[in-house]
């Protein structure tokens, strides 16, 4: 590196570049927040959905599953499970765990009430209606 390029110039470029791109990021974030209501299905957030999300979190579902592709990769994608399996299957599935089949991956029994399970399903339905730019590629997630 040439000798005329002093450390203080390098430092200025660092601060300048850092601030520049952070500001750009904030501008994009601002625009994203403005556009989101047309895409994020937030008009369908009901108290049931909110409670369902809380149950999703406090039972650490993300520790095995993915939701919109994020999470662990141990168990199926659930962002579109409402479409793939439908509400009745999901309810029966949650109640039926663990399967106890030897050697198979096991999902714990979370002892949720019927009302709780309805809320989890409401949350998964809400999640399935978010505009994800056509992801996943097919119904299998």
């Amino acid at each position: 590196m040439s000798a005329t390029f002093t450390k203080s110039m390098a430092r200025n470029v660092f601060y300048g570049g850092g601030v520049f791109f952070f500001l750009l990021f904030l501008a994009l974030t601002f625009d994203t927040m403005k556009v989101l209501p047309t895409r994020d299905n937030s008009q369908n957030i009901t108290p049931a959905v909110a409670h369902g999300k809380k149950l999703w979190e406090t039972n650490n579902c993300i520790g095995c599953h993915t939701l919109l592709g994020e999470g662990a990769y141990f168990a199926p994608e659930l962002g579109n499970v409402y479409v793939r399996r439908g509400p009745d299957f999901i309810k029966a599935w949650i109640k039926g765990q663990p399967t106890g089949v030897p050697g198979r991956r096991q999902m714990p029994q979370f002892n949720l009430s019927d009302a709780d399970i309805d809320d989890v399903v409401a949350f998964l339905k809400y999640a399935s209606e978010i505009n994800t730019n056509k992801w996943p590629p097919n119904i299998e997630g």
Binding site: G18, D40, N133
Partner: peptide, 25 residues
């Protein structure tokens, strides 16, 4: 300084590679 400048220049907006399929524009 040069390295971390490039880190921030690419990495901050690079956050966008997580915003493809989660409902963002």
């Amino acid at each position: 300084y040069v390295i971390i400048t490039m880190t921030l220049v690419t990495g901050i907006i690079g956050t966008g590679h997580h915003y493809y399929w989660i409902g963002t524009p």
